[in-house]
Write a protein that binds this DNA or RNA. Structure first.
Length: 269
DNA sequence: GGCCATGTTTTTAA
DNA sequence: CTTAAAAACATGGC
C-alpha cells in the first residue's frame, strides 16, 4: 500500500506532468470520499488550472488556481494520467483536461478527495495535524519528539501527528534496521537506540524512494515501482532466514496490526 | 463459494 | 489523559 516513497513519487510526477493543465470537467463515482456534496466539489474545481503538486505524509496536495485538491489513497489505489479511450476498468473519479488527457483515480477502500479553498489549508484538520515529513527529521528532531513519550515504539512511528509518512509496510524493515522490537516502550530507549532509529528511518525509506516506489504500486503512467521483494529485508518474509543472523523471521500481532520481526535481532527487552 | 487478512484514519472504548 | 481496538468497505488469496 502506498506510503511515503510511493506518495512522494506520485506527487513528483504529478507536479512535472500535470502543471499547467486545466480541469475541464469532473466525474465522481463515489461521492462518499468527498468532503463536499458532489456538485459543490465539481463546481469548485472545474475550470481550475493546476499549479503544482506536493505531498505531506500520505497526502498529495495539488495546488490549483481555484484552491487545493487533497488526495489520500487510503489503503492503496492508483492515480493514472490517461485518456478516455484507455480508461482502467475501475475508477472512483475522473478529472478531464482540455487536451484530451484525463486523470483517473481509484482506490480500494478509504481514500479521500478533498477540496480546500485557497488560503484555508490550515483549516483542513486531517492534513493540518500531520507532523513533519519523516525524511526531513534530523536526529535532534527525533530526540525532541521522543522525549516524554510513553507507549510502544510501533504506535509512535505510525502516529502521523508525530511524523508523517510511515505505514505498516515499511515499518517492519525500519524497526529491524534499528534492531528494535515493535513493542519496546518509548521511555526505555537508550540515546544510541534513538540514533539508530533515525538512521534506520532513512535507510528503510530512501531505497524505495530512489527506485520509484514499491513493486505493488503504480506510477501515473501505470508502471510498477522498482522496489522489489528482494529489496525488502524482513517484512512479509515469515519463516525466511534473517539476513543478519539466519534465525527464521516470525509474524506477531501488535495491537490490531501484524509485525514481522527477527526474534534474535529484535529482543522484546 | 466462503472465509479471512489486508492497510489508513477517525472514532469509540477501556 | 493515554493507549488500544474497532469501524468504515473492496479485493485477492487460499
Amino acid at each position: 500500500m502506498p506510503e511515503l516513497p510511493e506518495i512522494a513519487n506520485l506527487a513528483s510526477q504529478m507536479d512535472r506532468h500535470l502543471s499547467g493543465k486545466q480541469i475541464s470537467s469532473i466525474e465522481i463515482v463515489q461521492p462518499k470520499c468527498l468532503n463536499l456534496p458532489t456538485g459543490d466539489f465539481s463546481q469548485a474545481l472545474t475550470g481550475a488550472r493546476i499549479d503544482q503538486a506536493s505531498y505531506h505524509g500520505k497526502w498529495i496536495q495539488v495546488h490549483t488556481s481555484q484552491g487545493w485538491l487533497l488526495i489520500n489513497l487510503g489503503m492503496g489505489g492508483e492515480i493514472l494520467l490517461t485518456t478516455r479511450q484507455e480508461l482502467p476498468p475501475k475508477w472512483r473519479a475522473i478529472f478531464d483536461f482540455g487536451d484530451a488527457t484525463c486523470l483517473a483515480i481509484n482506490f480500494w477502500w478509504f481514500g479521500y478527495l478533498h477540496y480546500v479553498p485557497e488560503g484555508a489549508l490550515e483549516t483542513h484538520e486531517m492534513t493540518a495535524r500531520l507532523g513533519p515529513n519523516v525524511l526531513d527529521l534530523s536526529n535532534d528532531d527525533l530526540r525532541r519528539l521522543i522525549k516524554g513519550q510513553r507507549g510502544t515504539i510501533k504506535s509512535f512511528l505510525l502516529d502521523q501527528s508525530k511524523m508523517a509518512g510511515i505505514g505498516n509496510a515499511y515499518i517492519h524493515d525500519i524497526l529491524f534496521l534499528a534492531r528494535l522490537h515493535p513493542q519496546r516502550k518509548m521511555d526505555g530507549l537508550a540515546p544510541g537506540e534513538i540514533d539508530a532509529l533515525a538512521a534506520a528511518i532513512q535507510q528503510g525509506l530512501r531505497p524505495s524512494l530512489d527506485k520509484g516506489g514499491a513493486f505493488y504500486e503504480k506510477d501515473i503512467f501505470g508502471r510498477q515501482g522498482g522496489f522489489s521483494m528482494d529489496d525488502i529485508l524482513i517484512g512479509y518474509k515469515e519463516t525466511q532466514p534473517c539476513p543478519a543472523c539466519g534465525t527464521p523471521i516470525i509474524k506477531i500481532k501488535t495491537g490490531s496490526t501484524s509485525s514481522f520481526i527477527c526474534p534474535h535481532c529484535q529482543p522484546a527487552g
